[in-house]
Amino acid sequence: MPRFERALVIGASSGIGRALAELLLKQGASVAMVSRRRAPMEELARDTSRAFVYEADVRNFDGNGEVALLFQRITHDLGGLDLIIYAAGILPAIDEHEYNFEKDRATLETNLLGAVAWLNEAATRFEQVHGGTIVGISSVAGERGRRGSPAYGASKAGFSSYLESLRNRLSRYGVRVVTIKPGFIDTEMTRGKPGLFWLISAQDAATYILRAAERGTGTAYIPARWRLVTGLLKMIPSFIFRHLPV
């Protein structure tokens, strides 16, 4: 029997989310996948009856309880829920002098507000039934305010803080909340970007992430060496950090 029998992956059509859905299916779990793009999810679901596909945009959180309704439908279809992973995220390309509100709003809505909308549903449920695991794919980019991507960094900093709050709220109910801070992962989102190093595949990242979820680790850096790097980065005074090419 898999450690997580029923899992929901939001942002499952590509990158880390897709690799996680694939790995969970391989481990024998029933997996619900949510994304704007149906075709890649259907490809994963083709050879199994344990995969469920839902086409939805995580930025649609304003309507009449649409997220709540879909969330209940998903838990009904899955027959319960043991694990939810919020892996949806965008990193729009912006140049150093660009201040584009539409891009920033899309970033914050996808990376943070969508996460809050979906994970609030999971938190309510898990608190009620005293159990479950929440995993949020945040980023080391949220550790410091970098020049390159203000809104992305802010969205990930906000997401990490939100996840920590959830952890502090829910641990007393036996609910585990895991913050994942990946370094550079070879995905569509990062491909072609300059200055990447220590790149690992999405499949390797998924393996590390599920291990952290099973252990119920509070915050996991993927791979672990990023903990040291970000620890050092955090120690750099602001007046020096602003001159660094990061």
């Binding site: 309880g65 709540a68 309704l69 209940q72 027959g79 309510t124 449920r125 009620q128 039934v129 005293h130």
Partner: peptide, 19 residues
Amino acid sequence: MLPVERLERLKGWGGAVDA
């Protein structure tokens, strides 16, 4: 939609199955 407040984890008496 059903109210989440009614959600409970129930077990069979033997405790080997739950839902």
